[in-house]
Design a binder for these strands. Structure first.
Lengths: 344, 344
DNA sequence: AATAGTAATGCAAATGTTTTCATAAAACCT
DNA sequence: AGGTTTTATGAAAACATTTGCATTACTATT
């Protein structure tokens, strides 16, 4: 309507309408303090009238930050990463960044492909989930020399900066709790640990504790499930119908624990009377379910927020070298566990 | 390492190494059929050696598609949109697009701001959630003449293309079910309907049915809750402790229904014996919870997939005009409702 | 053998910005 | 009033590509 003739609304159109040069228009966007307030007003008016929108692509070409962040997560499909992603997003939004997101479905080849795609778009930093990445991925990141953080995991020897929790310790805490309550017939419900260091670490934590306590894991009571409530429920059903039903179940995360809760309910088993359950994660809903899920709290929102800040700063240059932040974790006792004094 | 001297790996570096002109390099990326296979090999090799990564920003500047899609959702934080987003993402990934995502927390002003940011990045299309958007937002989209779809809602009179379900009908189905079972003391648990046409439409659907059935809603039994399990649970608790406890509760969506289930459990009310509950959405987990949630199924994955395909095609030009797709919905009877023959 | 057509490539202009440098005008200081 | 600094602006180069046009070298066709 307004831009009737040649509806190409670029910086030239604005300059023309405001009777200034394009340099001035550009400056009025990027260094407003350098341009006369009156001129700025004129430009502002022209921008409004024409509906001009800056072209970040053209900016990016100058080696200027693209203002985008390439976030790659295993999945967006459920609770697990929802909170971190939301917190991360809020945190970087506040700094004016735009998030590109993609999921790889726990396939590290796809992760690499996604990363390349992101790099074509010249994302400023690259946040990842966890420590398990292909060799190619690590090399790509190092070669491009692009700021990267891994979220969700913490390790002193990580190859990249990391902000997260010690997953092995999470496993330890969960197992200690159950063992401390006297349970010895313990079932394990974990996700596949391939390409998933978080799950692997947690598992190794619980194994350590069980070993120390002289409890060995009955292979029949050691089952695997993907991160889906449906899957977890049917895997749990298998556990609960085992001839030697465990008195307690340790779950790789809260989604799986939820599956156990539902499975128990459908078998008319009372929790915690007939079965104790502990999860890891403390997702949304874990405290509301009845009885409230006893779990190890991983501070998802905090991790997301910290990672967001860290990256924003490492881009704007206030921060440069790598960094490892370990967030506190703790066992939250709610209603799914009770002491066990069975024969054994 | 490889690019030792002037570590600026651009198209020139590749051209030099492969002993061809930059035009040829560019062509070999974008129109491979125009370049001699042998040359292509040489270029390919140079690219590998140098670790060259194309710069999409430079491409975008030519008015070529940016290859990005700006997805703006109310929230990424829970189940509600997780499935649509994942399905949408998978669908457009397959076409080589990259998703930019942002959430606005049900604030239409923020939505507008996010949209502008996306447009600065020259996103190709703009998928939104629902029909409620500010006037400014609609004008921006129309003026920029950018393909947009709204997901999750369906209406014959929508201003933009839409792919989704008829939310009013969803409300109707939910209410009809409960009324059909003989319930007359019905509680309502809905989210705030401001800036949320989905919720508003559903509500209007149930109101219509209740009105038809001569049931009027006791204001005490008409409560509001944000989309959070915690909130929903405490709101539901309020309902269940009301002096005139309803025999059935209609929920604006499954997250809220979940809250009701948990609340009932914590009050030692049996579902469906003491209370019937129906949700809307059929999210992940709704079928696994015990008893399984009776709800109106909205095909989230299908909506996401269709919207993704629609946009991918409208970008690549195979498809141009707007379009309205209504997805089938249906009441799924599971275990949270039972007939009611109370005095009334 | 001459001509037309095609395949493969290079040159240079174009894309929409930012920024360095230069210049002009205004303000400040004796 | 003359010189100096400051403020405001513009011209043009730079950014990393794509692409239209021109050129060259082949391959068919008569």
């Amino acid at each position: 309507m307004y831009d009737s003739n040649k509806n190409k609304v670029d910086i030239f159109a604005v300059a023309k309408r405001a009777n200034v040069s394009i340099s001035t228009v550009s400056r009025s966007f990027n260094h407003p303090e350098l341009v006369n307030p009156a001129t700025r007003k004129k430009i502002e008016r022209a921008v409004r009238k024409l509906g001009y929108i800056r072209n970040r692509a053209a900016q990016t070409m100058h080696g200027i930050r693209s203002g985008t962040i390439g976030l790659v997560v295993p999945t967006i499909d459920h609770a697990i990463f929802a909170e971190v992603v939301q917190a991360f997003s809020d945190s970087v939004d506040a700094h004016g960044f735009t998030i590109m997101i993609a999921s790889h479905g726990y396939d590290l080849e796809r992760e690499y492909a996604v990363l390349r795609k992101f790099l074509e778009h010249r994302v400023d930093p690259l946040p990842l989930i966890g420590e398990d990445h292909s060799q190619e991925t690590y090399e790509l990141i190092e070669r491009q020399n692009i700021p990267a953080v891994t979220m969700w995991n913490y390790s002193e020897t990580s190859r990249l900066s990391c902000i997260g929790a010690d997953n092995k310790m999470a496993g330890v805490l969960a197992a200690q709790h159950l063992v401390g309550l006297g349970h010895r017939d313990i079932g394990l419900l974990f996700p596949p640990t391939k390409d998933n260091d978080r799950a692997r670490d947690r598992r190794s934590g619980v194994q350590k504790i069980l070993l120390n306590a002289g409890i060995n894991i009955n292979p029949d009571l050691d089952v695997e499930s993907t991160y889906s409530i449906a899957d977890a429920k049917s895997a749990a059903l298998h556990l609960l119908r085992s001839p030697h039903r465990p008195s307690g179940i340790l779950c790789g995360n809260d989604v799986l624990a939820m599956g156990v809760l539902y499975a128990a309910r459908s078998c008319n088993l009372d929790i915690p009377q007939d079965l104790s359950v502990v999860g890891i994660g403390d997702f949304k809903g874990s405290s509301e379910v009845e009885p409230g899920l006893t779990t190890v709290r991983l501070p998802a929102r905090e991790i997301g927020r910290l990672a967001g800040n860290h990256l924003s700063q490492s881009i704007t240059g206030d921060l440069t070298n790598e960094q490892r932040v370990g967030c506190d974790i703790a066992l939250i006792e709610r209603g799914t566990c009770k002491p066990h004094f069975g024969v054994s």
